[in-house]
């Protein structure tokens, strides 16, 4: 009997070890431990043995069963590990294949620049205001010290809707609306589309964008014009940006100044972009003209104001190195999609 049992265990062990799949292992288990399995059968037929041998054989067979069960469990673990490994191997992907990405749209550079400007001036306490594109001649010109039928109108060639209505040539006209509606202190920035009678060419558009700024309070000085705008220039163009202010003329400011920044391309050493001057003209500014203050009912002896205006298209062109301003309105996706990370 011993011999027979030993042989049974040895056979089982061999079958277990040669099983290469969970299914094969299960067959081995059934063969030995299943309802009709050899060890199970042997245990069932204990009665065939003499009474006195039964306990020893029974114990022996039970041990054999436990041994075989143990071996099967162990083997099951081994096979599972192998099978997992094989499955993982089979599931391997080419990580260099292109991903399936959700499509995401890009912002237009004009609105990227607007947002940045609004943030910079917002931190200085400026609030955003807007106004109509079709504006009264009065707000666009007359209240800003540009009388009707006056040669100074030549400065800004204008689209007319009617005798009294123009397409605004600057968002400065909203200054008038704000000042007529509010008392100082005022700090406002005014984004928006503006219109000039210019044909479309690489550096002109008849419709473009402006950001105007307005501060009215007691004791606003020309030094404040410089301070506010220099801070903007450093935040927008970078901390090393230099600025200079040149005397200029705008009908609605006195004194008036043009602000130049050190060239974004050559940093002042001179290049094609800055026409070898080292400087780029960025914006017009100045203290509000006393006639404008009086027009909106403020007394120039009590309050003063500063105003500035910049072309957002021009600023974008400089910031992003856009060679032809028409790209800003053509909306060729090959251009617009370059701003996906803006």
């Amino acid at each position: 009997m011993d011999e027979k049992a030993k042989k049974l265990i040895a056979e089982a062990k061999e079958s277990i070890e040669s099983a290469m799949s969970l299914q094969g292992l299960e067959e081995v288990r059934v063969k030995y431990l299943g309802k009709k399995g050899e060890i199970t059968q042997a245990l069932r037929s204990l009665s065939k043995y003499p009474q006195e041998e039964r306990p020893a054989i029974g114990r022996y067979l039970n041990e054999a069963r436990e041994t075989v069960e143990g071996m099967i469990e162990k083997r099951r673990g081994e096979i599972a590990a192998i099978e997992l490994e094989m499955r993982l191997k089979a599931e391997e992907v080419d990580v260099t294949l292109p991903g399936k990405r959700p499509s995401i749209g890009a912002r237009h550079p004009i609105s990227v620049v607007y947002e940045e400007l609004e943030l910079i001036f917002g931190h200085m306490g400026f609030q955003v205001y807007e106004g109509p594109d079709v504006e009264l001649d009065y707000n666009n010109f007359e209240a800003l010290n540009v009388p009707r039928n006056h040669p100074s109108r030549d400065i800004q060639d204008t689209f007319y809707i009617s005798q009294d209505l123009v397409l605004r040539t600057h968002t400065t006209c909203v200054d008038i609306r704000i000042m007529k509606a509010q008392k100082p202190p005022i700090r406002a920035i005014i984004p928006g589309k503006v219109y000039r009678f210019d044909a479309v060419d690489p550096s002109h558009l008849p419709v473009f964008h402006q950001l105007d700024g307005l501060v009215v309070d007691e004791g606003i000085t020309f030094g404040d014009v410089k301070g506010v705008l220099a801070r903007f220039a450093r935040e927008f163009f970078g901390p090393d940006t230099e600025v200079r202010f040149r005397p200029s003329y705008f009908p609605f400011t006195e004194p008036s100044a043009e602000m130049d920044v050190s060239c974004v391309l050559c940093h002042g050493s001179g290049c094609r972009l800055c026409k070898y001057t080292g400087w780029l003209e960025i914006l017009g500014s100045g203290l509000l003209h006393p006639k404008v203050l009086k027009e909106v009912g403020f007394d120039p002896e009590d309050v003063s104001g500063l105003a500035f205006g910049m072309g957002v298209d021009r600023v974008s062109v400089l910031k992003y190195g856009i060679e032809d301003i028409r790209l800003l309105v053509e909306n060729d996706m090959a251009f617009n999609l370059q701003f996906i990370h803006a």
């Binding site: 200085m124 306490g125 400026f126 609030q127 202190p185 005022i186 700090r187 501060v215 309070d217 007691e218 004791g219 606003i220 000085t221 020309f222 030094g223 404040d224 410089k226 301070g227 506010v228 220099a230 801070r231 200079r244 202010f245 040149r246 005397p247 006195e254 004194p255 008036s256 100044a257 203290l287 003209h289 006393p290 120039p300 500063l306």
Partner: peptide, 26 residues
């Protein structure tokens, strides 16, 4: 104000100190 500009431009815009508005913002 026109005389103010005359004085400022000959005095030199670059010599005018840059400041920030003194009043509290609205």
């Amino acid at each position: 104000e026109d005389l103010v500009e005359e004085i400022a431009r000959i005095y030199g815009y670059d010599k005018i100190p840059a400041t920030v508005p003194k009043g509290a913002p609205p």
